[in-house]
């Protein structure tokens, strides 16, 4: 493949990438704008105040709050799609660079001696480019945004689901987490109490035993560097 055609391919790829990212961004804005600018129905009273956007209305807990939580979830999905696109774009650039190297100056003839070698060489170039890409600031920034957006998305989804669960007398995840924390802490307390009781029982017995056989050391009592309770 000639160098000019590689450049052309790269240009086209970059244009498509920019277009895709622009589309994602516009879609996000459109979704957000659509919800933000949606207004209350027109009032029959012409002297009434101007229509109020839903997003600015006093929270009336319509649909038990599900509407606002659905909006927040939708917003989070849009952000996730945008950051995913950003991350794919950075990785896509690495693929282009790998292809550029593979198809031009760097390839040795022996790497193209047969089909297997040629394909494996291509994978090596791609792997190398992707590993280098993973170390770039651009990648790290995109990855961080993606992780944050995915966390946000899961949290908004949980909040939305909890509206449904509460309305249907189902335990929510937050409630189950609270419960498991209580059980965890109770178990710790029970164990600590059991140890205390065991020690209290063992101390008189060990004292009596020590009077008879002073060199015997019970083998189930740990000798701790820190004095931690056994």
């Amino acid at each position: 493949m000639s160098e000019s055609s590689v450049h052309t391919m790269q240009d086209v790829f970059e244009q498509n990438l920019a277009l895709w990212q622009h589309t994602q961004s516009q879609f996000t804005d459109w979704m957000k704008d659509g919800l933000d600018t949606a207004t209350t129905p027109p009032s029959p009273d012409p002297t009434a105040f101007t229509q109020t956007p839903y997003s600015q209305m006093v929270g009336t807990d319509m649909l038990f709050g599900a509407d606002r939580k659905a909006m927040a979830f939708m917003d989070a999905i849009m952000k996730l799609a945008g950051t995913s696109s950003e991350l794919n774009g950075v990785m896509g650039q690495a693929w282009v660079e790998a292809y550029q190297r593979y198809s031009t100056t760097d390839v040795h003839k022996d790497e193209l001696a047969d089909v297997m070698s040629a394909v494996n060489a291509w994978f090596n170039y791609a792997n190398d480019a992707l590993l280098h890409c993973q170390r770039t600031q651009e990648f790290l920034e995109a990855q961080r945004n993606y992780v944050k957006a995915s966390t946000e998305c899961r949290n908004r989804y949980r909040e939305l689901m909890e509206v449904f669960q509460e309305q249907h007398q189902m335990p929510t995840r937050s409630e189950v987490d609270d419960l498991s924390q209580t059980v965890y802490e109770l178990r710790k307390e029970v164990r600590a109490l059991k140890r205390q009781l065991k020690q209290q029982r063992e101390v008189p017995a060990a004292t009596e035993e020590a009077m008879d056989t002073p060199t015997d050391i019970p083998d189930d009592i740990a000798s701790k560097k820190t004095g931690r309770a056994a």
């Binding site: 590993l131 280098h132 170390r135 790290l140 990855q143 961080r144 944050k148 966390t151 899961r154 949290n155």
Partner: peptide, 25 residues
Amino acid sequence: LEQGYLNRWVRNLSSQELSDLIDSY
């Protein structure tokens, strides 16, 4: 080149972001 991905992945996120990530699951 091949080493340290996990170390970098963690260092790239703030402590709060890591905590939020784990809490979300």
